[in-house]
Simulated assay, not measured.
Amino acid sequence: MNTPQKNTHWALVTGASAGIGSEFARELAARGVNLVLSARRLDRLNALADELKAKHAVAIECISADLADPAAARALVEEIHHRGIAIDVLINNAGYGVPGKLTAPAWQEHADFIQVLMTAPVELCYLLLPGMQQRSYGRIVNVASLAGHMPGSAGNTLYGAAKAFLIKFSQSLALENSSRGIHVCALCPGFTRSEFHDVSGARGVVSKMPDFMWMNADVVVRQGLDAVERGDVVYINGRVNRLLRFFGKHLPDRMALKMIQRQSKRFRVQDGK
């Protein structure tokens, strides 16, 4: 195991092998935070770790985990403890989208999605919070989405619902721990340039969105880490996204749903039943 260098804090980043997760790893390493990187693809984690150790004086551990497995979150935390590491910063980033309407995929795809995007983040918080509380220090970023603030869309049926859950969960967790030196933030980016849309099969659809709708992953991450450090409980990246959230919140429900219904085909894969 690597020996920690300048910083005694350790961060766990889930879904760290690509996209926003790898940018969290890069930014945290640049800030001197030691890292536990977790994802399914250990080869990509090791390559990222080599890159970061060459640039920054931080310790890095890589642990393969598939959070779709109901036993994975607890096994991940047990392995971290076995390696003698106490996690002070938790980045619940692992996630993806299931394209199509509700009955298009097999149920197991939805069950795995719920496990990865909802159950696993909550369980990781549940398992790691006691240590943070004992040390009177903790930072938790739950990567949600602008979609969690907007009306539901046709296609990717569970995505907005899961992200809305993360936002409400983060708010409650923040209130419960605000006096204990622990900051919790639901980070809500909009369209972000990363591998996310390739994995979900939506690249061909979302590539038609105008350039001003997009943000770079490194900017999203820097803003998110600054937000949780300030104590922001919910942070929406970008003025355009904050404006969209304003309209989504204040338009009458019927009007907002009609608008999303017309626009869903521009950013959601709707093939299937």
Rank of each mutant, 00 (worst) to 15 (best):
L28K: 02
A29V: 04
A30N: 12
R31N: 06
G32V: 08
V36Y: 04
S38C: 11
R40L: 03
L42M: 08
L42C: 00
R44A: 13
L45F: 02
A47S: 13
A47G: 08
A49I: 04
A49W: 03
A49Y: 04
A49R: 05
L52P: 05
A54H: 05
H56L: 03
V58G: 04
A59Y: 06
I60D: 02
E61F: 04
C62W: 02
C62Y: 01
I63M: 12
A65H: 02
L67A: 09
A71Y: 06
A72E: 08
A72Y: 07
A72F: 08
R74C: 07
I80F: 12
I80D: 02
I80Y: 03
H81K: 15
H81N: 14
R83C: 14
G84D: 14
D88C: 03
N92R: 14
N92L: 13
N93Y: 15
N93G: 12
G95S: 13
G95A: 12
G95Q: 10
V98Q: 14
P99V: 11
G100F: 10
K101H: 06
L102S: 03
T103I: 03
A104E: 12
A104L: 00
A106N: 10
Q108M: 05
Q108C: 01
E109R: 12
E109P: 00
A111M: 01
A111Q: 13
D112F: 01
D112A: 14
F113P: 01
F113R: 05
F113L: 09
V116M: 06
V116S: 08
M118D: 09
M118L: 11
P121V: 12
P121W: 13
P121N: 13
P121Y: 13
P121R: 14
V122R: 11
E123P: 00
E123Q: 15
C125S: 14
L127F: 13
L127V: 10
L127W: 11
P130V: 11
R135M: 07
Y137E: 09
I140R: 04
V143I: 15
V143Q: 06
L146C: 05
A147E: 05
A147N: 04
M150Q: 10
P151F: 02
P151G: 06
N156E: 10
